[in-house]
């Protein structure tokens, strides 16, 4: 196990590379979810503002 982690003396380079790969791709995968929530919240806000501006106009759902 220690041998495996040491990577023949190149452990720091190899494991940092793997870590960069995993972390960047993890962040990249999380980004669309965050963006999606922001977009949908914005749309809800717009719908609500319209509802308060014209309370008796029931044309729009």
């Amino acid at each position: 196990m220690t041998d495996f982690l040491a990577m023949g003396g190149y452990g720091a380079y190899v494991w940092t590379s793997i870590a960069v790969f995993l972390v960047v791709l993890a962040l990249e995968a999380l980004a669309p979810g965050v963006q999606r929530r922001r977009v949908l919240a914005e749309i809800r806000g717009r719908v609500q503002r319209r509802a308060t501006r014209a309370p008796r106009n029931d044309e729009t759902p």
């Binding site: 003396g9 190899v14 790969f21």
Partner: peptide, 11 residues
């Protein structure tokens, strides 16, 4: 290159 070459698998 010993084990350093293993970076190839992500690079």
């Amino acid at each position: 290159q010993g084990d350093a070459y293993r970076i190839i698998f992500v690079h």
